[in-house]
Every structure is written in structure tokens, then in C-alpha cells.
Design a protein around this nucleic acid. Structure first.
Lengths: 318, 318
DNA sequence: AGTCCCCACGCAATCGCTTGCGCCAGCCCG
DNA sequence: CGGGCTGGCGCAAGCGATTGCGTGGGGACT
């Protein structure tokens, strides 16, 4: 490792000057500056983030604590987050929460000991890590899965109106019995979508029937003429079930779903879906976190980004 | 931040002793140890990885420099890598190479200044980062995309035999004109698959025709009765084209493809595919890297893990 | 010619930890 | 009863940067 000291002696100045040249933190005679820059060039000096962090307190790194377990669109989300972070000069420290409270706890402790400047968190249900982060005053923003709390920064998809829109679309096509295949219980996202489902039913003048909200398609078959699918994971399951039971999507069973998958147009019929603004969620989350790091006193914000409907044919339209 | 000094004074010992208790690096009277542990407990001390790294030189972190651009199975790969790294007490620093030489260069410099103990790299074509890493003596292992170099650790899928197997499967079904829709040019993976394709043709007693290797399905239509698809990305494109052209996969055009996608059974017909051992590749890569970190002099290894054939119906079988 | 300023730069403390040395006290042994 | 050993701990020197304070030298102004 080439240190600052070596650069300094090569340039014939003190490390103080080298430091100031690098950080542009005080004026240096241009002749001197040139010498220093040349020395840096020659030695291939890259600086030592570790040493710098020790004295500055900051690390220019963000912790990304998410649940990696095959969350399909997380790849895209992570890419968006990485892009925005890098653009702002921050590095990402990635850690899997495994969707369990203990792992999450361990993950957060890890990040803390690594002194990340802020944390992007996809909270597990019943997360103990969040309070801890708040107590320690670590800048945090919640991504994707939101909580009802108003005192924390968070960004995720708008769920209520969007789900309502899906339901109403089916209702407008004449469906009277509309089911909801819901996602993982206990998540705020799931609850919100159920809420949106009720709202949509109400707006369409349809009655709510709790038997029509199920975690899988099976019990809904024969009971409904249309279904709203709450997320990618259940979607795969639903399509599999439909195929196994010989139910024809589109004609026999109208289907609208959350999550835009890349194969939406490759199945028959193509899927009408609510595409979440994944990329934007990622970017926004990072921006929100950086602004929080900059001003820890800023009032917390909750940002909900609206999904967009990709209208295809599984809903029965042509 | 609660420092070691605070823990020490609370326990009534020197920081030296606290350090030794934490790292178990010399014996401490059990009564004393208890007091220290209690103090740690009470203060919620987590240690400061930054400070520790500054003196030890190591960071217990690995750099993961990959191309994030919607590489579908990278989510899975990253998850596997993260899991293995965490299990071994290492943290991941994630950075996108964006598949360009400059980004890759910047990424590697970044990782270096962050003093990661090792780097997992998916090299861009024409990567300048690799030589630099070698020159600096940074432990590195190449993942997924391999090079012909023998002097570097690398782990990825076996391509030649696997592709040959795909070709021969089609040949055994009676196809005489078999095309290859190849992936991104310039990648070793692509070359190897082309090679495997030739090998397969040869073994099946078929002639090689360079016109039958194309980056898209379009020019192959009408020319072949069966195709091998080289990766996930082109697969989507191929299926789209087939659909647009009204070509029936399975009956009119036999298709076998690389990459097992989660929707393989949801399209019609279900896809016969070569499933890459993604998880195993990830785990193996981390292990290899850790062993290299431990023993920098060990002879470099190239590990190729065999994909497994998932036989479904797009190949025309039933 | 003397005073004052300001520009360029260096000294040295500091961040929180690890670790080579060394000190002290108690015990065993001759 | 003295010397040597050993177990239990503390001192203090770094690790490689940042940064408040100080110093010297060269105009500009009175």
C-alpha cells in the first residue's frame, strides 16, 4: 500500500499539504499542487478510506439490509440503489436479513460496527432492529415494505389506490365475484392491498366477502370469475394452479396481478399487471437517506410512488 | 458511540484487557473476564471495525464487483455469495461494474481504497482491472464469466460439454439443421458455448455452418428445425420473435435453452433448459476466495460446475 | 524603515483499536 | 530465606489519515 507519507516525500512536502490538495480543503500554491498531483499519479496512490473514516467519523458507505430470498424484483431494486449511491459517492454494504428478526438484528449490528453513514432497510415483520436504529440515531429509511409509523423516512409503492384500480377494472368488465390472492401475511404491503381491494369493491358497489381473500388460488376456483393477484410470488403459484386445473386465464378466469415480470408477454394470455416503479423507489430511497444524513433534524417523510397499469389480456380484454 | 475505553473504565481494567477478552487473544482471569463481559453487555458495545482494521490491516470484507444490469439470476448468485460470506464472518461491499471497462476500473479502485480483503469479480470483456488486481496482489476470484487464463482462481459453469449435450439432444430427435442463438459477443462464456455447439454437431455427425450461429432468432427462421439458446436474455427475445412470427415452439421449432427461469413451466410449451448451478457457483467462489486470502501462494484453480438438464417439452419431446 | 497582513505550508494531536514489552505479586524450590 | 518462574495486566507505540494552530517570508501601507 502506498501511503500519503510516501506521496508527500516524493513531492517534497508534508502530508498536510498532500491531504489538502486531495480534499481541496485549503489553497495550495499551484506549483506545489502540481508536484503533489504528479506524485499521486506516479505512485498510484488511492487513499485509505479506513484511515480517513477513523478521523472524520463518516465512511461514505450505506448499509443495505434487505431480504434476498429470491425476491424477484430486488435485483432491479438493488441495481437502482447501487446506481444512485455510487453517483453520490457512496458505497454499498450489502447484507441479507433473511427475513427473520434475529438475522436482521445481527445485520444491523454489523452495519453499525462498520459505521455506515446510513441504512436502507426492508423491515421484517416484528422487527426489533428499527427501534434500535432510531435509538442510536442512525439515519435510516425503510424501503418497499412500509410501516404505519409516521416518524421514520420511508418510500414504497402506493398500494391502496392501485389495488382499488385493479378491482374496479375487473368490475367494469362485469365481474361480480372478484377474489384476492393475497401475499405473505403480517406485511404492511399485504394489509394495504387487502384494504385497497375492499375499497375497490366498495367503489364498484360490490359486497365484501372475507372468503374471497385467500393465500392461494385453489379455494377460490369456482367461487369467483376474476382475481387480483397480490404479488409476484403468488402469481407463479396461481398460474401453475390454473394450468394444473385446466382453468383458462382470460376467458374462464379474469386475472390482474401485481408486479411486472419480464415474461408477462410470453405467457398466454399476456398478463395485465401493476408495474411497481422499482427503479424510482430505489433512487428515491437513496436520495431520502442522503438528505437525512445531511440534516438529521428534518421531519420524516413517507413517499409512496404510484405503480402503473400495464394493460394486456389476462383480464379478458382484447 | 461507546468506545472500548468506556467499557474498560466501567469494568475497572485497561483497554488492553478488554481487547484481549473480546478477541480471546490471551488468557484473562475469569473474574476479570466476567466483569468485562458484563460491561460490554451493559453499554451495548459493538466494537469499531474501522479502528480495528486500521491496525490489523484486514477488514473482514469482500468486494463484489458484478454487472448488475438486469442479469436475472444474479439475484440468486448474490444471495448465495452473501450467505457464504456472512457465514464466514465477512461482509460484502457491492459495486456495479456496469459492464464497461471504466466503471470496472473505478469499482476496483474503490474496493481497494476500502481495503477489502478480497474481490469477487465478473470481468468485463477487455477488463483492465484484472491485471491491476493481480499486480497489487489483491486476492481475486472470477465468477461466472471465466477467462482462458490459468493463473487466476475462477469458478463458473461448465459450458462446452453442456452445450454439446443440448445439441446432441436435438440431433437425437432427428434434427439435422440446428441453430445457435448466441449471447453477448466477446465473452468467454459465449465462445465456449459456440465451441460446445460445434463439438455437439461433430459428435452427432452434423456439419458446421457459420450462418447458423446468430445473435437473434430472426435470420435463423426457416433455416433450422431446432435451436439452442445461449442465455436468458436472448431467450426472452427469441420467444418474443417466435410469438410475433407465429412460429410454434416444440412442434415447428424445437428449442432448448440455457438458464432455468422460474417461468419455465408457465409458458407453452414448458422449456427444456440447462439449469446452471448458480447457488453452488456462488458458494464455491467465496470459499475459493477465502482460501486464497488464507494462503496467497496456493496454486490458482479453475472450477467448472456442471449445469443440469431440465427436460421439458420445448425440445419437442412429450 | 517599521508595522501589519496574508499567503503557503508544517507540527503534532487525535480517531479507536491491537500488540510487543515489561512490571508486579505470589509460589515453588533448593 | 532468596531467586526464578509464571500468571495476570497495563503502558505506550503505532495504523494512516484530518485539522487546529503556528511560523516564516514577502508585499503593501503609513
Amino acid at each position: 500500500m502506498v501511503t500519503m507519507r510516501e506521496v508527500a516525500s516524493l513531492a517534497g512536502v508534508s502530508i498536510t499539504t498532500v491531504s489538502h490538495v486531495i480534499n481541496e480543503t485549503r489553497s495550495v500554491a499551484s506549483a506545489t499542487r502540481e508536484r503533489v498531483l504528479k506524485a499521486i499519479e506516479e505512485t498510484g496512490y488511492t487513499g485509505d478510506a479506513i484511515a480517513r473514516s477513523l478521523v472524520t467519523g463518516g465512511t461514505k458507505s450505506l448499509g443495505l439490509a434487505v431480504s434476498l430470498v429470491s425476491h424477484p424484483y430486488f435485483a432491479e431494486l438493488i441495481a437502482a440503489i447501487e446506481g444512485e449511491a455510487t453517483r453520490s459517492g457512496y458505497t454499498l454494504v450489502l447484507i441479507d436479513t433473511r427475513d427473520t428478526a434475529e438475522s436482521e438484528q445481527a445485520a444491523v449490528r454489523m452495519l453499525r460496527s462498520r459505521r455506515v453513514d446510513g441504512v436502507l432497510l426492508t423491515p421484517t415483520s416484528g422487527s426489533a432492529a428499527l427501534p434500535e436504529l432510531r435509538r442510536l440515531g442512525v439515519p435510516t429509511v425503510l424501503v418497499d415494505r412500509l410501516t404505519v409509523a409516521k416518524d421514520v423516512d420511508q418510500v414504497g409503492p402506493e398500494n391502496v389506490q392501485a389495488t382499488s384500480t385493479l378491482v374496479r377494472h375487473l368490475a367494469e368488465l362485469g365481474h361480480r365475484r372478484i377474489g384476492l390472492v393475497s401475499g405473505q401475511p403480517g406485511l404492511a404491503t399485504t394489509d394495504e392491498r387487502v384494504l385497497g381491494y375492499r375499497l375497490g369493491l366498495g367503489r364498484a358497489g360490490l359486497a365484501w366477502d372475507e372468503d374471497l381473500v385467500r393465500p392461494s388460488l385453489e379455494p377460490l376456483l369456482g367461487q369467483v370469475s376474476g382475481v387480483v393477484v397480490s404479488d409476484h410470488q403468488v402469481l407463479v403459484d396461481v398460474l401453475r394452479t390454473a394450468r394444473a386445473r385446466g382453468v383458462r386465464i382470460g376467458s374462464e378466469l379474469a386475472l390482474v396481478t401485481y408486479d411486472e415480470v419480464e415474461w408477462a408477454e410470453l405467457v398466454d394470455p399476456p398478463l395485465t399487471s401493476m408495474a411497481q416503479p422499482v427503479e424510482e423507489i430505489g433512487r428515491t430511497a437513496v436520495r431520502l437517506l442522503l438528505s437525512r444524513i445531511e440534516d438529521p433534524e428534518r421531519a420524516p417523510e413517507t413517499i409512496r410512488l404510484p405503480p402503473v397499469l400495464r394493460h394486456r389480456r389476462s383480464c379478458g380484454c382484447h
